[in-house]
């Protein structure tokens, strides 16, 4: 009789079903721990400075030791300077230098408009390189344009993260972008700026602006300046007309839009603790 044990079989099936039901109810759904984007990302924009660059160095391609040209500008009158002789050299409104990919550079911002005496020490992390035509690397730098709102938010106690990315050629708008017309993509606090930049293109640099000041103890200086990484100066053309022409050409040829993880500008108050 092949079906003689039918009641026993039904009972066994019921036990198995019940056990499976309880086991399923106790198991946590992995999606409960996913982020808002529905997946885990190994890298995010709020990681400590240096991690993303080192992760890029460990990735595909050999780009260690490459000096990536950058051009740093800001509001009219603001001066930028890199470390020199243990301190900061004379600032310039247009700071051009070649920075090592993967390193973190702490530069100085002075003469901020409408903020007399205020100084900021943001960091610039080059996390990838560009591939300009051979011999024209200094003519096509990564253009980083900082806004007045960034400085105001940083002096208000906020941490502003700007991620500069190279536009995806398949989705980029066929419009010339200049520092004047280039507007950053502002993301909310709960969004990952790096993820947004990854979606729009290829991130190449990160600028983080805060209100921290240099330490007074000399022993803390290497840590504050991330070990004084080497950078290569880019000389301006001797002729002023050539310089203006080169600058205009540089800005018209290419501009890299940034993604800003920041907030609306606030006044210089102790905003965090007053909430």
């Amino acid at each position: 009789m092949p079906y003689g044990n039918a009641p026993l079989l039904k009972f066994a099936c019921g036990v198995v079903a019940l056990s499976m039901l309880f086991s399923e109810s106790n198991a946590a759904d992995p999606s409960d721990y996913l982020g808002s984007n529905g997946r885990h990302r190994m890298l995010s924009g709020d990681m400590p400075p240096g991690l993303l660059g080192q992760a890029r160095l460990a990735g595909r391609g050999f780009i260690a030791g490459y000096f990536q040209p950058i051009a740093l500008t800001g509001p009219q009158g603001a001066h930028f300077a890199l470390t020199k002789d243990g301190g900061y050299g004379a600032g310039a409104e247009l700071l051009q230098a070649g920075l090592l990919v993967g390193n973190v550079y702490r530069f100085q911002v002075t003469r901020i408009p409408d903020m007399e005496g205020a100084e900021l020490y943001p960091t610039l992390e080059v996390i990838d390189r560009t591939y300009p035509p051979p011999g024209l690397a200094t003519r096509y730098p990564i253009v980083i344009n900082l806004d007045q709102e960034d400085f105001e938010a940083a002096l208000g106690g906020k941490l502003v993260t700007r991620i500069i990315y190279l536009e995806d050629p398949d989705t980029a708008l066929n419009i010339h972008q200049t520092p004047i017309t280039n507007r950053p993509v502002e993301v909310a606090e709960y969004q990952d700026a790096l993820e947004v930049a990854d979606r729009l293109g290829r991130p190449v640099a990160i600028v983080r602006i805060g209100s921290v000041a240099p330490p007074r103890a000399p022993a803390l200086m290497p840590g504050f300046f991330f070990g004084f990484p080497a950078w290569a100066p880019i000389q301006q053309p001797a002729n002023s007309a050539q310089a203006a022409d080169a600058q205009a050409t540089r800005f018209q040829d290419r501009s890299l839009p940034p993604v800003t993880s920041g907030v609306a500008p606030v006044t210089v108050t102790d905003q965090p603790l007053s909430q």
Binding site: G50, A58, I63, P229
Partner: peptide, 28 residues
């Protein structure tokens, strides 16, 4: 910290980078 990685750890850099100790100023 962030500066130490396979890309920047010692042997990745050439002798051209030989210079002063850490904390040395970046050349003008």
């Amino acid at each position: 910290g962030p500066m130490m990685g396979p890309g920047m750890g010692g042997p990745m850099m050439g002798p051209g980078m030989g210079g002063p100790m850490m904390g040395a100023p970046t050349p003008a």
